[in-house]
Structure formats: structure tokens, C-alpha cells
Design a protein around this nucleic acid. Structure first.
Lengths: 192, 192
DNA sequence: ACCGTTGGTCAACGGGTGTTGGCAAACGTG
DNA sequence: CACGTTTGCCAACACCCGTTGACCAACGGT
């Protein structure tokens, strides 16, 4: 046995594994869960479909391994209250444009129950804590975080998935300028 | 030939055709395009899968026939300017909850290119004209309508497709109270 | 009462899918 | 060098899909 520690075995096949994950992310983002076939992913990665099964067990296992999301949400604590909206929107836009994982997740979340549950988990584990930092009333944190999610996900849906032309045409600055006050209000404004 | 006019032939099979369309809408809304199989739809409708082919030609033809969307958007002309936001949000919520077609369309729009184009068409043909009625600057109508779409679709996504628990828990009145000012601002407020 | 038209079923085809097991080669230690 | 392990390919399985064509039964106008 080369290393007694099971952590990070550093196998010789790591490059292949990574190629599979890359191809899987791309296909899941472009085609959604059903249309992204293991055969196509293997072809993109330049290996045999059976390798995918050996390394990731099943198509579901591959999806779980390929689509892991860390939103890297910033710490809103030290920020002035009136800047949390624009900070969040700016960060979200950057994340959506620098990785295709989020598009893949949204596509799959819209079609399969398992995908929807995955998004619920991300919402709960990553967005809720941030909302807790800036929400005045702890009781209202879930509702306000959910409202924030509707606006952020709605923009992602229109711009990166449906590709509504006017939503694509907007510049990042315009989007921040329009959405930041909305998010700001959902998180910090008193009840309407 | 019973009637010389080809319009509304009123065939004997109309009840079967309607049953197929009903089952198709339900399956497309619940499962998305790929997982909604013709066989399952036919089983729901209580007939043979081949009938679906005879009446609608193909799976795509069935989808086109089953998912036709008329948002029935109200005429915003006579309305006071400050009420257009709440009128739109209220109307959208009612539409989403009274028919499953919109959920089906959103699910399919998120997965297939054809579905996305269908939604683009609905946006352009149905939402844009309404926005034109209330937007101050004609130049900005597409952008403002798109912003409105992001918020409305985002709520539909979170509430009816992803089913984020806090989004489901919100009452209709709460949703209107929170979203109406957002939509109002996107459509009528001066540039930020 | 005939007979073309329509509504409906049945069985099958061709193709693509996820998944499996066997086998050959390359590798990395003893 | 020898040998267990890893990496990879190949061929196949079982299943489900959309789609097709042959066939039967009920209708309805003349």
C-alpha cells in the first residue's frame, strides 16, 4: 500500500477522473440531466463509458460528484447595511459567469426531484446563514432569504438558461443597479 | 361528407383528444419533456400510445398542441400608474395556480432549446405589449419587461418548481405585498 | 343493408440508454 | 524479474423509448 492514509490517495487516474468531471459539468449544463448521456460525457472525456461507472458508480453518482456548489458568499457582517444588496448581486453575477456548475444545477433542479432537493439544500446551508447576518427579525429570515432567491434565480433563469434577449443584453452594471435595491429591500426593509 | 366547412369538424373522437391533452399537460408539468413518456400519457388517458401519434403526429407535436399559453394579461391602460405592479403580480399568481400549463412550460423551457424559444415568444408577444403601455421611455421597454420577467419567473421557479419551503409558505397576499413594488419600479421608475 | 370512413388495439421494429463482467495492457512495488 | 493492482477497452445485456403498420369494430350516409 503506497500510503497508509486513505485521504488524497493521489491515484494515477486523477487526470481521467478530472476529465470526466469537466465533461460531465459541461454536458449537464448544456443539456440537462436526461439528455446528458454517459456515453456522450465519456466521448467528450476521451474514454470508455464503463470507466464512468467504475469511478462514480452510476449516473446519479456522477452528477453528485460533478455538481458540487460552493457559492462562496461573502461575509456581510462588516459591510454597511446599505451595501449588502449590491454586494450580493455583484457576487452572484460573477459566480454565474465564471462557472457552468450553477447553470447545470438550475437545469437539473427544474426537471428532477433530486435536483430540486439539492437546490433546497444549498439555499438552506449557504444563503440562509448570510441572510441571518443582515435580517432585523430572526423570525423572518427564511421568508426574506427566499424572496432574495426568487430575484437572483429569476435573473439567472432569464439570462443564462432561457436567454431572453433583453436579459442577455443588459450589462452587469445595469443588472446590479436594478436588482441591488430589490435584494436590499427584501433583506433589510421593514415589512411592506 | 357531413360538413363542407373544414372548420371545427366536431369529430366523434373529441373527448379522446381532450383526454390526451389533459394527461399530456399533467405529465409535462410534473415530469418535464423527457421523462413524460407518450406511453405514460396514453395510459393516463386510457388509450393506446399509437392514438397519440395518429392525432398529434409526434411527441413534439403533442407538446405543441398541449402547451399553448395565453397569459390573459389585463389591460393596464385605464389603471392608475401606481397599481400596475400589484395588478400584474396578482394576475400572475392566479394564472400559475389555476393551470399546470405554465409549470410545464417552465420545466421544458429550462431543459430544451425549443422550450426556451417558446418562452421567448410568449415574452415578446404577451408581456412586451403590456410593458409598452406603462413604460415611460419606449426605448427601455424590452429591458424593463425583461426585469419584470426575472422577478415573476423567479418566484414561479422557487415556489412551483423548486418548491423552496419558505417560498411555498408565503401567502398570496404576502407575495403581492413584497413583489408589487419591485415590478412597479422595474416598469415605471426612472433609471437607477 | 351495404360499405367507406373513423376510432381504437396489438405487436413489433430500430435505436439509444444505463449498467455489467470479462479480458488485455500498463504500472509499481517486493 | 515476478506479481498483484490499477487503468482501460470491448461486447453484451436488459430495458425503455418513439414510432409504424396491420388488423378489427363501430359508426353513418345513401
Amino acid at each position: 500500500m503506497p500510503d497508509n492514509k486513505p485521504a488524497v490517495p493521489s491515484r494515477r487516474s486523477d487526470t481521467t477522473r478530472a476529465a470526466i468531471l469537466d465533461a460531465a459539468r459541461e454536458r449537464f449544463a448544456a443539456d440537462g440531466y436526461e439528455r446528458a448521456t454517459i456515453r456522450a460525457i465519456a466521448r467528450d472525456a476521451g474514454i470508455d463509458p464503463s470507466m464512468v461507472m467504475r469511478y462514480y458508480g452510476s449516473k446519479e453518482g456522477l452528477f453528485a460528484a460533478a455538481v458540487t456548489v460552493d457559492l462562496k458568499l461573502p461575509d456581510l457582517g462588516p459591510l454597511p447595511r446599505e451595501e449588502v444588496g449590491s454586494a450580493l448581486v455583484t457576487h452572484f453575477l460573477a459566480m454565474w459567469e465564471e462557472t457552468e456548475v450553477l447553470t447545470a444545477l438550475l437545469r437539473v433542479g427544474a426537471t428532477s426531484q433530486a435536483g430540486a432537493e439539492r437546490m433546497q439544500g444549498i439555499f438552506q446551508d449557504q444563503l440562509l446563514p448570510v441572510a441571518r447576518q443582515v435580517c432585523p427579525d430572526p423570525e423572518q429570515v427564511p421568508a426574506r432569504a427566499a424572496l432574495t432567491a426568487t430575484q437572483l434565480l429569476g435573473m439567472a433563469l432569464a439570462r443564462y438558461v432561457l436567454r431572453l434577449p433583453p436579459a442577455v443584453a443588459l450589462s452587469r452594471q445595469e443588472i446590479v443597479a436594478w436588482l441591488a435595491p430589490t435584494v436590499q429591500r427584501y433583506l433589510t426593509a421593514p415589512n411592506p
